[in-house]
């Protein structure tokens, strides 16, 4: 069973978002997404300072078997990226909601957070895909 955390928001493309309460969110991929991909061997993080609109490709996660695009779940400017993933992409598998975080975004529009799924809605999405 995939782990879904109650305090996070979720996108349909299986990113999670943590509201840091200071106008920024931390973004990663969900436990479900990392399990589907399998062992990650490469993560291409976006550049700090780059800006994305909702749905833009903003990075790549690659497992031994396949590459998968990362999509910006909200619009905004990238303020910080997890440089440690360069040496240890497996952190995304081991701890997708912690050490495996991928980047932080300064929200262009705080209202966008409300339009994302909460844990119950995301769990329902996973159940429907199962």
């Amino acid at each position: 069973m995939s782990n879904v955390l109650a305090n996070l928001k979720y996108s349909e493309s299986h990113e999670w978002l943590l509201d840091n309460g200071d106008g920024t969110v931390t973004v990663g991929i969900t436990d479900h997404a990392q399990a589907l991909l399998g062992d990650l061997v490469f993560v291409e993080v976006p550049e700090v300072g780059s800006t994305f609109a909702v749905g833009d490709e903003c990075g790549v996660v690659e497992s031994v078997k396949a590459a998968s695009d990362l999509y910006a779940p909200v619009s905004g400017e990238v303020t910080e990226v997890n440089e440690a993933l360069g040496d240890s992409p497996e952190s995304v598998n081991a701890d997708p909601y912690g050490a495996g975080w991928i980047f932080k975004v300064k929200l262009a529009d705080k209202a966008q957070l409300a339009s994302l799924m909460d844990a119950a809605a995301y769990q329902a999405l996973l159940d429907s895909e199962a």
Binding site: G38, D39, V41, V64, K65, E90
Partner: peptide, 8 residues
């Protein structure tokens, strides 16, 4: 079988 947990 593609893997039994971890391909690596």
């Amino acid at each position: 079988p593609i893997h039994y947990g971890s391909q690596l």
